[in-house]
Design a protein around this nucleic acid. Structure first.
Length: 273
DNA sequence: GGCTGGCCCTGTACGC
DNA sequence: TGCGTACAGGGCCAGC
């Protein structure tokens, strides 16, 4: 499940390989989520950027090819015809003028592709309303506090909306709340808790980035390599295992449709509502 | 306008 | 062994 560190790892690999190449042909799964991939045909790729979990490929005609990896999206670049080309889970592919083919596979089809005028993200609500980048100086503890205390939703639910900060998904959210010793089901927090959560978010994402991403099931880089960060998770997916800080057994619950792992001893009792 | 819950998807794990 | 069911979850959207 690609979150910011995984998407950034992929971005770096694509940005090292694609700028300068022109898309001479394209194909896509007929679903409305992937069909727009063919709209990029004829354009050259200038750069590969990232906002949150979205990959933004700048095209030379004033548009952007936007790709969200969803849960199981993955890129590969085929250099020889017939080798690592489109497969049963390929949802889009782009043939380049240098003979390579960029292939986008997505088993569960939670991904999404769009081509828009540069900077016009109105057709992608989450991207349009996206919060600051976590490593940007504009993302401060105060900004996070303001974004979280201005809602009555659970803190984690609000965090996953991508509005307080861009790029945090379920894995890094659990890690950040555990690190900050803040209960994710709370609906309010102090400025001191916000400061700890801010530090926890940045730290968790930085660690994921340094590890080349977290591979739990499907995530692979463009080069097919798995991430390493799954070996360093302290909380996510460790229900029933001892907390690395206090030794209590970690618990898990489902709130707002998302499984959350937490330490009752470190992060406090679950709020009544 | 804010919030909640359902839906989309398919491989994997597990129980019977 | 084979079948059925639950589960994983990011983003969108209808309905409250």
């Amino acid at each position: 499940m690609p979150e910011l560190p995984e998407v950034e790892t992929i971005r770096r690999q694509l940005d090292a390989a694609l700028p300068g190449a022109r898309i001479v042909a394209a194909g896509a799964h007929p679903s409305a989520k992937f069909a727009p991939a063919t709209d990029a045909e004829g354009a050259a790729i200038r750069a590969v950027r990232r906002r949150g979990k979205y990959l933004l490929l700048d095209l030379d005609d004033g548009r952007e090819l936007i790709v969200h990896l969803g849960m199981t999206g993955a890129f590969s670049i085929a250099t020889d015809r017939g080798e690592a080309g489109p497969g049963p889970y390929t949802r889009a592919w782009w043939e380049l003028d240098d003979g390579r083919t960029v292939v986008f596979d997505d088993i569960r089809r939670f991904g999404r592709i769009a081509v828009v005028d540069a900077g016009d993200y109105r057709s992608l609500p989450t991207l349009h309303e996206l919060g600051p980048e976590p490593f940007d100086p504009a993302f401060t503890p105060k900004v996070l506090w303001e974004a979280l205390r201005g809602t009555r939703r659970r803190l984690k639910t609000q965090l996953l909306s991508q509005r307080p900060v861009a790029g945090v998904g379920n894995i890094y959210a659990d890690e950040a709340f555990w690190s900050a010793q803040v209960h994710p089901a709370r609906r309010s927090l102090t400025s001191a808790q916000a400061a700890r959560l801010h530090a926890g978010i940045v730290e968790a994402l930085r660690r994921g980035l340094d590890g080349g991403g977290t591979t739990l099931r499907d995530y692979r880089g463009v080069d097919g390599r798995r991430g390493e960060n799954q070996f360093h998770l302290a909380c996510y997916g460790r229900r029933g295992l001892p907390c690395q800080r206090c030794g209590s057994l970690l618990e898990a619950a489902v709130w707002d449709g998302r499984t959350t792992t937490f330490c009752r001893a470190c992060q406090g009792p679950t709020p009544r509502r």
